[in-house]
């Protein structure tokens, strides 16, 4: 890994939500700040900046990661997906997003993008989890509004629906 001068701006070429992008950042800039304040991707929310609350979770090369515990320079050459990647601005909501709507899985919506990014990766890896496993996965995210029941119900409903579809095919 090259040694970076702390005051020099680094050029960061990376893939953001499927599009090749370039931005600049000092070596110490957090990925969360870079996404929000340099790239203008404000769906990535900052809740604690010490890795506990999970609001800033994004996917880096397909894996859910805390963008507040990642430096911007670390994503050079990599693929970063934020909540804006799920349905984009105008496509229909994904089944998971729609389930959050149906089951009232969000209130203020501040923690939601992080939860969606963790959950979508989790369900790719583990399409048939138990409720206990879902709650365990969610324990990396703090939500103050919902008491989690709506979130859990939305995810369980998505799993059920996907299984129904898979069985029908």
């Amino acid at each position: 890994m090259p040694k970076l001068n702390q005051d020099s701006l680094q050029k960061i070429d990376f893939t953001l939500n499927g599009v090749a992008e370039t931005g600049t950042a000092e070596p110490r800039m957090l990925l969360s700040d870079f996404l929000r304040n340099v790239m203008g991707v404000t769906g990535c929310h900052v809740g604690c900046e010490h890795g506990v609350c999970g609001a800033c979770t994004v996917q880096i090369d397909g894996k859910a990661q805390r963008s507040c515990l990642t430096l911007a320079v670390q994503v050079a050459g990599r693929k970063v997906d934020t909540v804006e990647s799920l349905a984009g601005r105008e496509n229909p909501l994904t089944d998971l997003q729609q389930a959050f709507k149906t089951h009232h899985g969000l209130q203020c919506g501040y923690c939601t993008p992080g939860i969606l990014m963790s959950t979508s990766e989790f369900l790719d890896r583990n399409p048939n989890p138990t409720e206990e496993e879902v709650r365990d996965m969610l324990s990396g995210h703090l939500c103050r509004c919902t008491g989690y029941a709506g979130i859990v119900n939305a995810i369980m409903a998505t799993i059920e629906e996907r299984q129904g579809k898979a069985a029908a095919e």
Binding site: R36, V41, T42, G43, C44, H45, V46, T82, V83, E84, L86, A87, G88, R89, L93, Q97, F100, K101, T102, H104, L106, G109, Y110, T112, P113, L116
Partner: peptide, 19 residues
Amino acid sequence: IERVEDEALLRGVARYADD
């Protein structure tokens, strides 16, 4: 009734003060 707020929130395009 499903909430009218949710669409923007779920897409990550809802605007909070810092945005």
